[in-house]
């Protein structure tokens, strides 16, 4: 009994010792030298691993920053300027301040504005629907409403409104990572300047059909009438392919175009309600001045 016991202890101890030596040698031989700065920078990152910066994740971003020792073209949309300042301080290189952005859904084709012409019976995926046909309305540029953007968003910031079947962005949650922009097969979602006090003006339509066709498909479509283009005092609006676009770098949010648009396709959001429209809560009615998000 005694010998068995001693024997067992000896064998196990020797075995453990041998393996420890092997492990030690292997660890020594295959040790990867890494700049400790990478870990430091990674720690300052938001850790969402959303890929909004264009890299595979926060670690990849940190590695790229340390490797190139420059922040040119590198920006974390989730962390914004605050995080980038920390990174810039750690790295000791200059950073470029960027205005905060937000995802904007440019489609006004709510169920009320845009009648369904067919019944889609396939999988609930915008992408599958888009490869199949133009969509279940007469507008083949508009939102398909299956919520690929919602599925792509890992911050829960964009949700399809079950009543309008148009996604709505939660500005507080949106990090402008761009996942929804990539997911949307119709290219409706755009990252736009958040604007002073989150106030901004944009054309909520992507329809490039001629005015008559667009209007027939959706009562709130941009018909390319160029009224806004003529009205804009800053030259921020251009009409191409029967569709107006507001350049947010030039737009001074004067809202002259909003009043001018005959279909209410131009939206102005987060402006204080006009005295006439007393209730503070935004209504779902598709009027031009009504805040949409």
């Amino acid at each position: 009994m005694g010998t068995t016991f001693i024997f067992t202890v000896v064998v196990l101890s020797v075995l453990g010792l041998l393996l420890a030596v092997v492990l030690f040698l292997v660890a020594k031989k295959f040790r990867v030298e890494e700049d400790p700065l990478i870990d430091e920078i990674e720690a300052t990152m938001p850790g969402a691993n959303c890929g909004g910066c264009g890299f595979a994740g926060c670690r990849a971003f940190a590695e790229a920053c340390v490797k190139s020792r420059s922040l040119d073209g590198k920006f974390c949309p989730v962390g914004g300027n605050a995080v980038m300042q920390k990174v810039s301080a750690k790295l000791g290189v200059a950073m470029e301040e960027k205005a905060p952005m937000v995802a904007v859904v440019r489609c006004n084709g709510t169920c009320a504005n845009r009648a369904r012409t067919t019944q889609y019976d396939g999988s609930s995926s915008c992408r599958i629907m888009n490869t199949l046909y133009g969509g279940d309305t007469a507008c083949r540029y508009g939102c398909l409403g299956c919520g690929d953007c919602e599925k792509a968003c890992q911050f829960g910031a964009i949700k399809v409104n079950p009543e309008t079947l148009i996604p709505e962005v939660d500005e507080d949650r949106c990090t402008a990572c761009g996942a929804c922009v990539k997911a949307c097969p119709k290219g409706i979602i755009e990252l736009r300047n958040k604007g002073p006090k989150n106030r901004r003006v944009y054309v909520s339509c992507m329809n490039q059909d001629k005015g008559g066709i667009a209007r027939k498909a959706c009562t709130a479509a941009c018909i390319g009438c160029r009224k806004c283009e003529k009205t804009c005092p800053f030259g921020a609006i251009t009409v191409e392919n029967n569709l107006a676009y507001i350049d947010f770098n030039k737009c001074k949010i004067c809202r002259k175009c909003v009043a001018e648009c005959p279909t209410g396709a131009i939206h102005a959001v987060n402006f204080p309600p006009k005295p006439a429209a007393a209730p503070a809560a935004p209504t779902a009615a598709p009027a031009a001045e009504t805040p949409k998000e």
């Binding site: 012409t117 019944q119 889609y120 019976d121 396939g122 999988s123 599958i128 199949l132």
Partner: peptide, 9 residues
């Protein structure tokens, strides 16, 4: 117009 059903094969 009647609403036709559309789905992939």
């Amino acid at each position: 117009m009647r609403k036709l059903i559309v789905s992939p094969a």
